[in-house]
Design a protein around this nucleic acid. Structure first.
Lengths: 345, 345
DNA sequence: ATGAAAGCGCTAACAG
DNA sequence: CTGTTAGCGCTTTCAT
């Protein structure tokens, strides 16, 4: 039972491949093919359950109707949700998704980009981990359609990107803490900090403190190595406990850090928010049902993806090179829950 | 700056496409091509950053080195983790992954399978939602390589599958509750219940009760419609509260139900485990850090995926049809935490 | 109203 | 040691 192809069904009816192809692609009427012939073709295709070989079609057309999504780790809820959203919007345009995890590794990401190009994907959505922007610059120079999400490259001018306002997200969270009476606020952040989202969040944190006239001490911007978050967070929190002033609040740079912080604090028997307040950048369904529920900075993930795909589709379909790129910065939302308490003076 | 192809580099050196192709595929030595020529080829390819067109290669070879993964919803942590694991094992064998979410919809899953076949994927990993097994039977009859995971079709004989022992997972969880003194135990399950994993978990629950001589009342196997879990769980829990006997424990058929239950119980101001105990089928990182931490039945997700891919790869590479299929049933593990309390008589 | 033929970029059998 | 040629399954121009 070998695979049936265009030629087979053409022969059986006694017409040409051309005709069958036209009919199947809805070009029957346009090319003035008899209704009767068209029906015969359709009927036989259905009867034989003919499945066109899209690889052959792709080769001929130079188009795969597939796009690649590159994220740090698809098992991370944030990226899983992103993937789902991207999947749905892609489907809407008749595209499929190849998903790849870079593990925040430069070399891996670079080789993924290369491989996806070889697979002839029509476009790329990238949450890039790259320090070295060569690959991105290369994509740009080749006019390869791509959109950066979540993270972008300020130094590479004129690329499409859709990100959130990380700076103001962190800024407003810290402000919220200050308004609640907190004076000694730590931030648990990630290193290396070349990723724009992390850098902007860090800056939002320090600026909010400066603006409020709070003496900003570098000790309180704690860098956790990416490779060992759990252990790193615990160590940093222990250090914070012996700080000269009592640390009353923590801002976690992302959900992973927040989760590790909750774990560590529980282990050390420190109560949230009684002894210390906590805010997480990135919201999670669980934060709502935890006890206490966790205050978080939420990103409009669906809107990010919707925009990213729309931009990508325009690029893909505008065969003519468009020099103007879309650069979207969306607002975040501070969702106040029970983990960020009020300090009475 | 148009794309460079095999012919271009062949011409520039003054050799044939064949030779270049051989060299690039590591067949240079085998075909006795001069070291010198080989080096020249390699050097030019590198210099021009030549990227072979894998679509052309796929068409020629009848092999895409791509497999499809079909799950209910990739944004669900369980499937996200599965996807990651599958991605890693695929990569190891030089394959890529197209991920599709079926939304537990029969028609959507059927059309995904059809589309992936048209895309010429080399194999399929399916966590199927199908009631109607026609598509699965069709795959089987065509000898299309596929492995069912998480859920299988007992009525379709001789297919590859890798699942867990859902029956004993639920059975042992209920037993644990009974040992802890619980007598009136409810199960929050999902409907429709044609999915094997759900059906087996339900059976494990009822059998454990019967075995313990506990009067099993159908009222306590609560069916939550898949489309509206949050609302459904709340309604069912309210019903349970007015049951003739005091319900002291709940088994949730999966993490989504467990999360909804935690939410509902909190809303109703019912304390876990003081007033009611809770066990979740499927474990989550969050369950460990919640307060109280949640007892759960964990699945060996990585082992499932590892086996599934290995089986799939054997099928794909054994061009000769293998009539013997692999059917793996892996054990679950009950992780006792604080949400399942002891009742004193 | 329909068909012949070329060609997308690659690989492999066969020839020299 | 290397090249010629055919062909994977499809679409499309051009002919009739």
């Amino acid at each position: 039972m070998k695979k049936i192809k265009l030629e087979d069904i053409a022969k059986k009816i006694g017409v040409s491949k051309t005709l069958v192809s036209m009919v199947l692609n809805g070009l029957g009427d346009k090319n003035g093919i008899k209704k009767e012939t068209q029906e015969k073709v359709m009927a036989l295709c259905k009867k034989l359950d003919y499945k066109p070989n899209k690889i052959a079609r792709s080769l001929r057309l130079g188009k795969t109707n597939t796009i690649g999504l590159i994220v740090a780790d698809i098992s991370n809820i944030f990226y899983a949700k992103m993937a789902r959203s991207v999947e749905d919007y892609c489907n809407k345009y008749g595209y499929n998704l190849i998903i790849c995890s870079s593990d925040e590794k430069d070399a891996k990401e670079a080789s993924i980009i290369k491989m996806l190009k070889e697979k002839q994907v029509d476009g790329l959505i990238i949450s890039s981990t790259l320090i070295d922007n060569t690959e991105i610059v290369a994509l740009k120079n080749e006019h390869f359609p791509f959109v950066l999400v979540d993270r972008y490259f300020p130094e590479v001018l004129n690329t499409n990107y859709v990100v959130v306002d990380n700076y103001h997200g962190a800024y407003s969270a810290v402000n919220h803490l200050i308004k609640n009476g907190h004076q000694t606020i730590a931030m648990l952040t990630i290193s290396p900090a070349h990723i724009t989202s992390v850098r902007d969040r860090n800056k939002g944190y320090t600026d909010a403190l400066l603006k409020a006239g709070i003496n900003n001490d570098h000790y309180l911007l704690c860098q956790i190595p990416f490779e060992n978050i759990e252990q790193g967070v615990e160590t940093e929190i222990k250090k914070l406990l012996s700080y000269q002033k009592k640390v009353t609040a923590i801002l976690a740079v992302n959900q992973n850090i927040a989760i590790a912080a909750i774990k560590a604090l529980r282990k050390l028997n420190i109560e949230i928010p009684k002894e210390i307040s906590l805010i997480s950048f990135d919201d999670l369904p669980f934060f709502e049902i935890m006890n206490p529920s966790i205050t978080a900075i939420a990103q409009p993930l669906d809107t990010i993806c919707k925009n990213a795909i729309e931009i990508l589709m325009t690029e893909i379909n505008n065969k003519s090179f468009t020099p103007e790129k879309s650069q979207l910065v969306l607002p975040t939302e501070l969702i106040v829950r029970n983990s960020s308490g009020i300090i009475k003076n």
